[in-house]
């Protein structure tokens, strides 16, 4: 538990209920959570706070989750931060595109606590 406590996760999600649900699950999983209600803010916070993992929605007003991925990967500070896309877009092409834009994992909504936590864990393990 001590190890997980040091891990900070940035949640970028425009829908408040979803944001809360995710934060709740991740808190429950023992992670420290910061959140942003749009991608632009998310990008700023990512550069500013250097989180260990970013979980982002795709469909958001203004900058999309995909663009956020690209922007994070372009920026040297955030280029190596693992990203999990968590979205309601469930087509194969969406998943493929998301991974191409630099995401490390792709979860479709609706998701369960276990799905979210296990995905976060596996991504964190992969990145040491």
């Amino acid at each position: 538990m001590n190890a997980t406590l040091t891990i900070t996760i940035l949640v970028v999600e425009d829908t408040p209920s979803e944001r809360e649900l995710m934060s709740h699950y991740l808190h429950g999983g023992g992670y420290s959570v910061i959140s942003a209600n749009n991608a632009q803010t998310g990008l700023s916070k990512a550069i500013e706070c250097k989180p260990d993992l970013i979980v982002t929605d795709v469909v958001m007003p203004g900058m999309s989750g995909f663009e956020l991925c690209r922007s994070l990967r372009k920026n040297p500070i955030t280029a190596s931060v693992p990203i999990i896309i968590c979205t309601s877009k469930d087509q194969g092409i969406d998943r493929l595109w998301g991974m191409r834009q630099g995401a490390n994992a792709y979860i479709t909504k609706p998701f369960t606590r276990e799905q979210l936590i296990s995905t976060v864990q596996s991504v964190v393990e992969q990145h040491g």
């Binding site: 795709v58 469909v59 203004g62 999309s64 989750g65 995909f66 663009e67 087509q91 092409i93 595109w97």
Partner: peptide, 19 residues
């Protein structure tokens, strides 16, 4: 310009444009 990435099939295509 920036195309809005919607939940539909075209959303991803829109992001392709954005890229």
């Amino acid at each position: 310009v920036r195309a809005e990435v919607t939940a539909g099939e075209i959303g991803t295509v829109a992001d392709f444009f954005n890229a």
